[in-house]
Design a protein around this nucleic acid. Structure first.
Length: 547
RNA sequence: UGUCCCGUGGUGUAAUGGCAACACUGCAGAUUUUGAUUCUGCCUUUCUAGGUUCGAGUCCUAGCGGGACAACCA
């Protein structure tokens, strides 16, 4: 009865902690840096962090890791908040690392007083030299043995703006010979006379990640601080700070970030695509950003299901983008209303159908949905069908229209192709067909059995529209494995626009964000560029094709 | 040639010392007024070598392979 769902390794840790009474309730946080838009990798993290709190009855804070004013902007803050909510999560508190600047400063003073931090005048080049390599130990800085009093005075001066950018840093005094390079006297504070999106010009020194993140977790009493694998070496420093500062012991756990085939998940590179106009913006439907996939027509439900399916573990992974598409189709199949749109039109004239007559044919909006309902489509003498659905010399397994052959017009009639009219160049210009009046959908007494069923649109009633067909942004499966410029791997055919397609009239009512399945053509959503005068649809994902 | 993390079908993820399973993909077939959906079946798996144990994917050791680490980024 109760379906045992296995736990991921972080859930196991949480359950063990709860069982041992280590925590009464858990607290997690989602800590984006507001220097770009959220992408699918963040979705994994969001689902993990918020999901944990939801599952175990805790809370999740949204905390912006805004300790580097030169790359961070409010625009990003606003979009990140919107994306998290769109995904379906609500944070407990909206916080900023910059809220803690005064306290972080006091933490630094405390370290200095304990003889565990010092002001260093070395240049960044000198520091890099003294740092050593992963296999050779570093050497001590000339300034490492300054007195506590001098350090206190110098640090105060740094804060007071008495020193220029890059002239001094505050460093932890740990061990320049440590095997973990992050423990070789890491920089804690640097001078940046830069305007911060929240604190303005109040500060000219800013804490580094390692001196802000763990302390922020601690201040918020985060029980489980979950991050990606590249922070594993930071954990030692994370714990060092907590121990020396004698503050609440948040604990860090690391999982493997999401990698997907034919996809690039680096914020820096995505920014480059935006800046160089290789895409139309952060919300270009080809982008793996949440705003991109939203505009593409992906649903939050599909994304959450995807995150559930990929699991959480510590080994490097490369998820087939097909899995994401599967989740999107699975969801859209349930909710998207069906419509008919002809992309590559071929005129069909029903010679035995009266001119000027229109019949309204009822058709299901969605047989998969509970109460899908029906709508009516106009049927008349002149129709558009898909060029692809007619073949003059069909191969054996082809079961659509061919000369002398019959096909069912979905929710319409069975028609027979009597004559093919060609242009002088041999191109098929028009089909002359006859319809079987007794074959009307739902009232078929013709006794005919045709295997092929195709979509169609009444020529007189059709609405013109534009469709944008998207494909993968990159042509290389594993974009992490390339060693040349990632832009060499851009798919030149990632966007194909068809400026004029013929849509059934019902579509004129659609509004941006509406999701449809265009019968036999794929899942589409109405783009934000769409207007009453000019309808625009984005292809979200193709239909599975087992032809 | 250091430290740390990780090795289970094609791709992911489970199996918590006791019959290696689930999903996706792929390939067949059934149903279908969408060549969709749905349904059925099939293909394919524990990196290697030792050790512990009645019994090892799981524990230990070594090797091999992959990844991370030398920003005043996060």
């Amino acid at each position: 009865m109760t379906e045992e769902k296995s736990l991921n390794f972080i859930e196991e840790i949480v359950e063990a902690d709860l069982a041992a009474g280590k925590h009464k309730t858990i607290a997690t946080r989602f800590p984006p840096e507001p220097n770009g838009y959220l992408h699918l990798g963040h979705a994994k993290s969001i689902c993990l962090n918020f999901g944990l709190a939801l599952k175990y009855g805790g809370k999740t804070n949204l905390r912006f890791d805004d300790t580097n004013p030169v790359t961070e902007e409010v625009e990003y803050v606003e979009n990140i908040k919107q994306d998290v909510q769109w995904l379906g999560f609500q944070w407990s508190e909206e916080l900023y690392a910059s809220d803690y600047f005064p306290q972080l400063y006091e933490f630094a003073v405390k370290l200095i007083k304990k003889g565990l931090a010092y002001v260093d005048d070395s240049t960044s080049e000198e520091m890099a030299e003294q740092k050593g390599t992963p296999t050779t130990p570093g050497i001590n800085s000339l300034y490492r043995n300054r007195s506590i009093e001098e350090n206190l005075k110098l640090f105060q001066e740094m804060k007071d703006g008495k020193h220029v950018d890059g002239s001094k840093v505050l460093r932890a005094k740990i061990d320049m010979g440590h095997v973990n390079m992050l423990m070789r006297d890491p920089v804690l504070y640097r001078i940046k006379h830069a305007h911060h999106h929240r604190t303005g010009d109040a500060w000219c020194i800013y804490p580094m990640y390692d001196f802000a993140h763990g302390q922020s977790d601690s201040i918020e009493q985060i029980t489980h601080s979950i991050c990606t694998l590249e922070f594993v070496p930071h954990r030692e420093l994370y714990n060092w700070c907590i121990e020396k500062l004698e503050i609440y012991p948040s604990r860090q756990y690391e999982f493997a970030r999401l990698n997907m085939t034919y996809t690039m998940m680096s914020k820096r590179k995505l920014l480059q695509l935006v800046n160089e106009n290789l895409v139309s913006g952060w919300d270009d439907p080809r982008m793996p950003t949440l705003s991109g996939v939203r505009r593409r027509g992906y649903t939050p439900e599909a994304l959450r299901e995807f995150c559930e399916k990929i699991g959480v573990a510590k080994r490097d992974n490369l998820i087939d983008i097909g899995l994401l598409e599967f989740c999107v189709r699975e969801q859209l199949n349930k909710i998207a209303e069906r419509r008919m749109v002809v992309f590559d039109p071929l005129k069909v004239v029903i010679t035995n159908y009266p001119e000027g007559k229109t019949e309204w044919m009822p058709t299901e909006n969605n047989t998969e949905a509970e109460n899908g309902g029906i709508r009516e489509m106009p049927f008349s003498r002149e129709l558009w069908i898909e060029q692809e659905d007619f073949m003059e010399n069909p191969p054996k397994k082809y079961f659509r229209l061919s000369p002398g052959g019959m096909v069912r017009l979905k929710s319409g009639f069975i028609i027979k192709c009597d004559e093919v009219i060609k242009e002088s160049n041999g191109r098929v210009a028009e089909l002359r067909c006859s319809y079987i009046p007794e074959s009307r959908s739902g009232h078929d007494t013709s006794g005919l059995h045709v295997k092929g069923v195709i979509h169609w649109v009444s020529a007189h009633h059709a609405k013109e529209a534009e469709v944008r067909l998207y494909d993968r942004l990159f042509t290389t499966e594993d974009m992490n494995a390339i060693d040349d410029d990632f832009k060499n791997h851009l798919n030149p055919n990632s966007l194909k626009v068809i400026r004029k397609v013929f849509a059934e009239p019902e579509l004129a009512k659609s509004k941006p964000g509406d999701k449809f399945q265009f019968l036999r053509m794929g899942y589409f959503c109405t783009d934000q560029d769409s207007t009453k005068e000019k309808l625009v649809f984005n292809r979200t994902v193709t239909l599975r094709d087992s032809k």
